[in-house]
């Protein structure tokens, strides 16, 4: 067993790994876009562009749109920014730190998935309205989580 032949070294050896990394970067950016837009409309009290359905405003103005007085979209935005920072950092830190950075990505995306599940449950069963932005964020977070599991495989002893 040689340390330096692993696929998750500082410069990825396999094209699949590089491709996955770029996909995760792109998903974090998309997540920042969605959560950023929702945070922006919430903070400036603007209506949410929602296509044909009117679910977005119903969801955005429900009591569940805030957590401890802070819009949930802001928590989402922070999570996506943290993921992006960790993903970028992963390529720049030493190899022994890299595994822990990857573990951080896994932890944050797991937290994101659990919250998305809770919020989607609220939309469907309590608020009785679904907003496409929230669904988009839930999907982005879920894909990020699955990809982070695959990443974890390459840094697990």
């Amino acid at each position: 067993m040689n340390t330096y032949s692993r696929t998750s070294s500082v410069v990825p050896a396999s094209p699949v790994v590089a491709w996955r990394w770029w996909l995760m970067i792109a998903l974090s950016l998309a997540g920042i876009g969605v959560a950023g837009y929702l945070s922006y409309t919430h903070l400036f009290e603007l209506p949410v562009i929602c296509g044909a359905s009117q679910g977005c405003d119903l969801v955005a103005q429900s009591v569940y749109a805030k957590m401890f007085g802070i819009p949930v979209a802001v928590f989402g935005l922070l999570a996506y920014i943290a993921l992006l920072v960790l993903l970028v950092a992963r390529r720049r830190v030493s190899e022994n730190l890299e595994a822990y950075v990857t573990l951080g990505v896994f932890g944050i995306s797991l937290l994101g998935v659990l919250f998305s599940a809770y919020l989607t449950y609220l939309e469907i069963f309590v608020i009785l309205a679904v907003c496409m932005w929230c669904v988009a964020s839930a999907i982005i977070m879920s894909v990020l989580f699955v990809l982070s599991i695959l990443e974890m495989k390459s840094v697990t002893l």
Binding site: T3, Y4, R6, A99, Y100, T102, M152, V155, L157
Partner: peptide
């Protein structure tokens, strides 16, 4: 170097 793998445990 051969014995030292970098990573996290289960």
């Amino acid at each position: 170097p051969v014995r030292e793998r970098q990573g996290v445990t289960k």
